[in-house]
């Protein structure tokens, strides 16, 4: 079997690693990430954020009307400030008071205006009966 003393494998690997790092740098320079918050640490984060919490109290309104769907969130665990949410869009399965949900949007005048709403998947891995 032919043997060679110099292999381009190392050069290929080194160039690949450099290429990947360069792509990473370009990507991170051009785009941002989204803060994933809960109601207790929402204040002081302007712009679009992802907010996860538990739906408390009554759910009113209609997500397809201009006034939107109104509900409130607090932290999934423990007591926290309650954040009023106004949502326009499609309402996922199993959305109701008491559910853990995730909304994406921004804080506008004391209310969180959401453009996306996801209910946590109805997993079978329930913690208790």
């Amino acid at each position: 079997m032919a043997r060679s003393t110099r292999s381009p494998a190392r050069l290929i690997v080194a160039l690949s690693v450099a290429g990947v790092l360069a792509v990473f740098l370009v990507y991170t320079a051009l785009t941002g990430t989204t803060p994933a918050l809960q109601p207790s640490n929402l204040v002081g984060h302007p712009g679009t954020v992802s907010l996860t919490g538990k739906v408390v109290g009554q759910v009113t309104g209609d997500a397809h009307n201009p006034t939107g769907l109104h509900f409130e969130l607090h932290n999934i665990q423990g007591k926290s400030p309650i954040v009023p949410i106004i949502y326009h869009g499609s309402v996922p399965d199993l959305f109701e008071s008491g559910r853990d949900v995730n909304v994406t949007g921004e804080l506008v005048g004391g209310s969180f205006v959401a453009t996306a709403l996801t209910t946590k998947c109805p997993s079978k891995y329930t913690a208790q009966v």
Partner: peptide
């Protein structure tokens, strides 16, 4: 990590 698959924390 925050997932839509709400596997209970254990």
């Amino acid at each position: 990590v925050n997932s839509i698959h709400s596997f209970a924390k254990s």
